[in-house]
Amino acid sequence: MATIGIPRGFFFDLYYPEWKVFFEALGFDVLPSPETNKVILDEGIKIGVSEACISLKLYEGHVAYLVKSGKVDYVFVPRLLSEYPPSAFTLCPKFRGLPDIVRAALLDMKLPDVVLTANGDWGKKNGRLEFYIKVGLVLGKSKWQVKKAFLESQKMRKKFMKLLLSGYLPTDIRRILLDGEDVPKPQFDGHLIGILGYPYLVYDEYITNHIFDRLRSEGFSYITADMYEWDELYSILKDLGKPLFWGQSNKVLAAAMKMLKDKRVEGLVSLESYGCGTDAWIGKIIEQEAKGIKPYMELILDEQTAEAGMVTRIEAFVDMIMWKEKMAKKGVM
């Protein structure tokens, strides 16, 4: 049976489990690319356009890795136009052009065109189902078969979302749902840090230098934008008067506003992709909103981000929060 490769970038962390179930229900084998490593990063930088953000370069690196491995017949590169129903917020242009960008990047490498794609307007009613049907039809399956596989995949999605909303990281959820491992339940007691940023950056342990492990070893727990109900975030946006144009940015901004009000969260760290246009906006907006309310720090990540600089900033941020608590206990404040 044919094998479908799924690059570990952009949508992977939030959608891989349901995609895996969908394709397997249709009788395909599914193979993800490995976790980001230096070879993938270097490849992405080599074939990607220099102006693009680091996350797009990483995605291209993952696609190239899959194709070059020779183990896959297709690489699944969806063209997502919108997300987050019922908002129908537009996604970043790199998502709209993704299959074309990927094909152009692979052109010089003279690799076979294995891109499996379909347009997805997920922000609209039934947008998700329509997308899956298109994908299934491309693969030569009947509408009936596809609908059945879709229902299976949505069962997986439900399980995934339940774990995500209770604070498990996507990587841990994959271990639980796909590998059948036991992972300790996330704790929200003690010190909680809000981690802001797009899922494809936040959950890539290579590019963030294992930020979650580091926080954990400092005795901190964390919450990300994806761990809040979308409906809750959406209502915050409606109160804003005028939301931003880009979908993912709206989600991060709303999560920031939520975290500023969430009594459990003691500080906010925003992970941003060097070269991301929208981050330049929301970073500033969050900075203004957080001023005088909660500690806030921006970490801009790129392919050269050194471990030392990152560690120092995280340690200092964590210290700042602990120091405040210590002084409050002593009754100084």
């Binding site: 600089g309 200092a316 210290d319 002084m327």
Partner: peptide
């Protein structure tokens, strides 16, 4: 502020 660190930045 009041003897404790409330914000910081390093050159990038």
């Amino acid at each position: 502020r009041q003897g404790i660190v409330v914000d910081f930045a390093m050159n990038t």
